[in-house]
Every structure is written in structure tokens, then in C-alpha cells.
Design a protein around this nucleic acid. Structure first.
Lengths: 226, 226, 226, 226
DNA sequence: CATGAATGAGCTTTCATTCAT
DNA sequence: CATGAATGAAAGCTCATTCAT
């Protein structure tokens, strides 16, 4: 069997496609989209190639044609959701002259992205359940989003203008924000049983968002002693 | 079919067991132990009853005898890991007269428990992947650990003595600590790819622990305005 | 899954079997019998587990239960046909005092066994097509039939009484007889195209048998010079 | 569908080919060569069109273009290996005035051809496994090599000069030589297990060759009684 | 209390082949 | 002359579960 063209997204955008090639890309894209949905719903083992190809109104066989095997499809899924996250993030407009407000917007963006894209959280959990074996297989080299870089900029600006502490590392701050957003979303089912409270309610989320923002601001506040 | 004894741990401890009942309990316990290991390793779908019964040096049939079916076994697994967590937590000795030190110890306990019991984190992720359907089926009523109660006590004492803010809710503080500990452990594989750093190294963990403690302390610090 | 008892034929014969065990052995035996037929008919790749289990009026699943996998089944098939050959051979009654007649009977036995058991020839061809990988996997240690031993005896007796040459090795004589019988049977289809003659006709076989016997006798005739 | 050129080798050699026809013949030839290799390695069922087209650095589709379907390809393979055998045989130079030496050379040629072209032996076995159905489909009419004719000549000359028996049929002698060479090669894997000896070693082959030659000479020796 | 036997549905993957350019 | 896309069937194998002692 012949390997289909594994062009990157950019290549495809720049090339003029014939009608057959367009249809082919549509098939590939619909399989990928269906895979995201089905894997997020049923897990890697539970999400069968049959369920996916049916959801994409295509055939099992096409998954092997375009992605080699089920694992290759999952690698593509992981790449795709990171790509989407990075695209969304790149649209975030920040005024670096206002580091406090920028940080607030970053926190809001992350928390809301997790809330609005539960499949992102779920698929990342699945990947961690499999010890990150697919992310390692992938040749996609853009996983490290610009997030940390942006936070670093904000942190530096804030430190220079004296509104932020100088001791904080961008990595720690990033992980803190991500953790507080991720855990809320990822563990909402067991947490609900644990806390006896529905975390999917809008009020619960808003309250948590406020808490996270205020906590983050306390964390980056300059040392009072200085 | 004969109903197998579905006694809780307490019941069993209080009763005198005949030699056959002892053997039966040993079979049940070894199946449960194997199930924890296999489910954590392979997931719910990937962890077959065959793998589990073999790991327990028992037979498929016994799983049905003791737990009804595979789902029943997983319910028992979830119960068991919560039970273990609660037992470990109950052994934590806190001096309520020193709320700062108590809080630090709570943070340490949680972060280290997650680190030392990766199967706890993994199995909770699996349960959330399945939208908490097993925790709902369970009749076990002790999921809400005493953790929040303890934090509440510490928080109250701290507020009274003026070392803590009065505005914080125990629930939020608990979730914050849990999130910071859980995310680090649960997502260590994708984070390692993302950050280009091995989070399983001792130094990385120690640094994170210090960061979390200092962040928590900043969060509960009394409002400077007051 | 639990491994079924892999008892040898002897063990089974000596033990008293319950009704369930008898039925189980019947299932295993009928799968093995069907496998011999189907593999000989369709080859290793062409003989699907489905065809075999259906021919045995059993289920795919049972092949995996009793033989592990398809390869395990083929190993058992190879063992079985050798076993059958050895049993047939052991029934051959020879008068060692008449080495000429004994040799003739051996030649007849081999040629006719190949003719009457085409599946033996076919399955051996299949095994050789696969470079003997299954015969190597087998723990069955009785492949080397007693044939060579018998021929050796006949040869020795014949040499002592002066009717046979003293220079012949039993191995060469055995291979010669086997080759002449095997090739005729194994390659009868291409040979028929090649020679334009139907080798499956009784007259053709009889003629060949006579030729082989006379050739063998010439081969073992004592050196005229002596 | 457009009919591809199904020219025989002779036709092609006699015609002057354009550059495109040359390229086409190269594709066809490389597919055929790859098919011989892959079919000999994996069998008819195991040798997929995909494996073959990849080995030929061509595409699945081309097999259908040039050979109709997989079966047509195998027919072409069988034709090709017979063609090659006949070509090699035709290069054998014999001195008919020396029938003894000629016969020796024929035996050597056949045994060594089988040894040096294991794919010939393997593919013939495969064809026999399929009851010769492809050789029957073929329109190639040159399967009956000149071998028998040559042997007949040698036999006649030898009989006239009194060095050979007059009773032997060329067909039987041919089959005898072929059997002794073919069996040794074809069954070397199971024979090795059977005899506990590696038949692929040079010394083993040489010994067998000597044995076959001496046996053949004994077989055709004139009747001592005459 | 435990076990060997059996079952049917489902899994991932590969197959030979055809279609439309 | 060659190719990328698509297809339906069938392959080997594993699954959770039940039956009969």
C-alpha cells in the first residue's frame, strides 16, 4: 500500500489542490475530527476504529490508509489538539504595559479554554495514562506553547515596574495556573462526589475563577519586606 | 447463584473467621490488589479480567464470584483506594495550636501521598474519564475525607489568632492544594514533553513542593490592609 | 484465561476421565482432525481458524483455548501426523532373516503410506515452506522414526549374509527410498504437466513402485568385484 | 480497461522497443522478479500484492495492469522459473560419445540447479500445494524441458555401446534423478530435524551427490546376466 | 469453594481489487 | 503510463461472561 502524503498543515494551505486531493483532505480531516470526539468519549481502548470511521462516515480501512494504524491516529489527535490550543492562545491580545491585567487575562484564557474544550483535558489525561508514549512518537515539535514565554514577559515587565515579585519563575507560575484550571475540569466528577457540589454549574466555575485569579495575584505580589 | 459475602472491612475485622472464610478473604483481597495494579497499568478497558486473575494467581471465575462483574470489581477498587487514602490521612498528627506548621504538613502529606501512590492518581483519572459512574454506584459513603474538616479547623484557628486571612473557604484551599499536587503527578508525562524537564527527578519535586508551600502560605496570609 | 491440560496421549489413556473431560478431549481431537484436513487443503495461510473450527463443528475461540494460537495448532498438527506415521510403521512386521524381502516391504510401506496419506506429504511440504519453524518449536521428541534403525538392521543382516553391499549407509538408503516415494506424490501435479501423464493412475503408481524396488535392490547389491 | 502487452519473451526480443515500451518492460520485469522472491519467501497467500509491489518499488495497481490479478502474476512466475530452468539446461554441453560421463553431468546439473535456485523448488512446491491449477491455466507450452529427450539420447547411445541396460525408460531415470535432488533440497528443514544433521552443509551435499551418481550408475548398469 | 469448558461479540489489521483521474 | 483514493470482506485474536460440575 502507498503512503498518503503526510504534508504539514502549512504545505497544504500553500498548495493548490485538485478536486480529488481536496476530497482526500476532507476524508482525513473528518477522520481526525471524529477520532478526537470518540477517543475523548470512550478512551483509547474503548474508542474503536469502527466507532471512529462510522462517526466520520468513512471506512475502517481509511484510518490505516491515512494514519498507518490506530496508534498513529492517536498521535495525530494529540498533535491536533495541541495545535488548536496554540492557535487559540496566539489570538490572545495582551497589553504588556499592564502586567496585572495581562496575567488576569492569561488565567482567564487557560481556565476557560479547559472548560470549553473538555476533550483537550480528557485526551491529555488519556495520554498520561499511557505514560506519554504517543507524544514521544510524534515528530510534531511545537508542543511547548508560547504560554511560558508570554508569562515570562509579563513577569519581567511586572518585576521591572515593581508590581510583581522578582523571585518567581515563569515555569512555576505557568504550572500553577494550569494545575488550578486543569484539576477543576479533569476531576470534576470525583470532586463532585467528594465535595457534594456540582462543579459544572456556572456559579461554581465563576467562583473558582475568581479564587484562582486572586491567588495568582497574591503569589506574584512583591515581597512586603522589600 | 450463591451470594458471596460482601462484608465491609470493619465487619470482617470484628468477626472471628473460620479457616475457609480466611482463605476466601485472602482470594478476594489478592484479586483486589491485583486489580488495583492492573487497572492502574492498563486502564479499565485494557485491564482484562484475565490479566487480573492471573496476576492474583486466581481464576477469572472468582472475580464474578466475589465482585459480580468487572464493573463491580472496579467499584471495589475505587472504594479501596479512597479507604487507603483516608487511613493514611488519619495517621497525620497535627498540632492545631500551630496552624502555619499544620498547613505545611497537610500540603506535604498530600503532595507526597500522590507522589508515592501513583496508582491512586491514575485510578482517579480513569474514574473521571468514565464520568464518575462507578463512584456513583458505590454504596461506600466515606469518600469525603476528613481533609476538608481538618483544613477548616486549621483555618479557623489561624484566623482567630490573626495569622490567617478570614476570607478563605476550606473547600477552595483544599482544592488548591490538591490541584497543585495532583496535576504535577498526573500530567508528568505530557508536562515533561512540554517543559523539556523530567518532573520525576527528586530535585524537581522538592522545588515544586517548596513553591506550593510558599504559595499556599501567601494565599492564606491575612489581608495586609487589615 | 486458564491453560487447558496439555497432557500427553499416554497420560490421558491411563487416567480415568469424567464425562466433562471426555467431551473436552473430543473437542480438542475434532479440532486437530479438522486442522489436518483444512491445512492440507488450503495451506497454512489459506487454512483459516474459522474454516477449521467450522469443520470441527466448534468455535474459533476453542482453538485458542486448546492450542494457544494458530501456530500452536499447526505445531500440534505436525506432531500428530508424525505420531500417526510412527504408529503405522511400528505395525510393519519384518522377518529379519530375509533381508531382501524385508527391504522390499519397507519400500512398499513408505511408498504406499505417502500415496494413501497425501495430507502427510502436503503438511510436510508446508512445514518446509516455512523453513521448519514449527517442528523446532515442538517439544515432541519422536520425529526420528524407527525407520532408519530398522533399515540399519536389515542392512547389517544382509551384509553379513553376503546378499547386500557392505558399503551402504542406512541414512542414504532411507533418504533414497523416501525421496523416490515423496517426490512422486508431492509433485504429481507439476509432473503430470511436465510428463503429460497422469501419475495418480493405479498403473502409473504400480510401475513406479516396481522401478523403485528394483533400483533399491540394485543399489544395495554387493559389489560384483568382491 | 486497456489491454497491457502480454507479449512473450521472444516477441519482445525481436521487436525494436521505444523508450516508453522499454520503461514499461522494466516495470513488468521488476514486478516479476520481486514476485518470484516474495512468493518463494511467503507463499502464495502470504505473499501479498502489497509486499510484491513494494519490493519492486512500484505500485499495487501495476500488478493489475500487467498481469490482470494476483493469480495471473503467479502464472507468470511459474512460466518464468521454468523458462530459466530450460535456458540453464540448454547451456549444458554433453559429449554423447561418452554416455557415462554425460549422465554424470546431467545428475550434477540437476542437483546443483536445485541447490542454487531454492526459489525454483519452493515455487514448484507451492504450485503442487495448489494442485497445479496455475500451470494448467498457463498458455506457456514449454514446460516439458528437453531433459527427458537428452536422457533418452544418452540412454540409447549407452545401450547401443553396451555400457547401459536396455530395459530402462528415460522417464523413470529422469524422475529418479529429479526426486533424489528435489527431495534433498525441498525437505531439508524437516529432514534436518529428523536426521539430526544439517543438510545445508557443503560436505553433506557433496556426499549426497556422490551417492546419487553412484546409485544412478548402478541403476543403468547392464544386466549382469546378459 | 473452586474450576475447566464453552460462547458470541468485538477487536485491530490486512487482503485483493476497482475507481477516477 | 501511472497514481492516489476508496472499498468490503475476511483475517487472527481477545474480550467479558456463563455453564456444568
Amino acid at each position: 500500500m502507498i503512503q498518503p502524503p503526510k504534508d504539514s498543515a502549512q504545505d497544504i494551505a500553500q498548495r493548490k489542490l485538485g478536486v480529488r486531493e481536496k476530497a482526500a483532505q476532507a476524508t482525513r480531516a473528518s477522520l481526525l475530527k471524529a477520532a478526537i470526539k470518540i477517543f475523548a468519549q470512550y478512551g483509547l481502548d474503548g474508542g474503536s476504529v469502527d466507532k471512529i470511521s462510522k462517526a466520520a462516515k468513512s471506512h475502517d480501512r481509511m484510518i490505516y490508509y491515512y494514519f498507518g494504524n490506530k496508534e498513529g491516529l492517536f498521535v495525530a489527535v494529540i498533535e491536533e489538539i495541541y495545535k488548536r490550543f496554540n492557535i487559540a492562545e496566539s489570538k490572545l491580545k495582551l497589553d504588556l504595559l499592564d502586567p496585572l491585567r495581562s496575567l488576569e487575562k492569561i488565567v482567564q484564557f487557560i481556565l476557560r479554554y479547559y472548560r470549553d474544550h473538555p476533550e483537550f483535558v480528557t485526551l491529555l489525561n488519556i495520554e498520561n495514562l499511557h505514560k506519554g508514549k504517543h507524544i514521544g512518537q510524534s515528530s510534531f515539535r511545537d508542543y511547548s506553547s508560547t504560554a511560558i514565554g508570554v508569562i515570562d514577559q509579563v513577569l519581567t515587565t511586572g518585576a521591572q515596574t515593581g508590581v510583581f515579585s522578582t523571585k518567581l519563575k515563569a515555569r512555576d507560575l505557568y504550572m500553577m495556573i494550569a494545575a488550578l484550571g486543569y484539576f477543576y475540569q479533569s476531576n470534576r466528577y470525583t470532586l463532585s462526589a467528594f465535595l457534594g457540589e456540582n462543579l459544572e454549574a456556572k456559579s461554581a466555575f465563576d467562583q473558582w475563577e475568581n479564587f484562582v485569579i486572586s491567588t495568582v495575584l497574591k503569589t506574584i505580589a512583591p515581597d512586603p519586606s522589600n
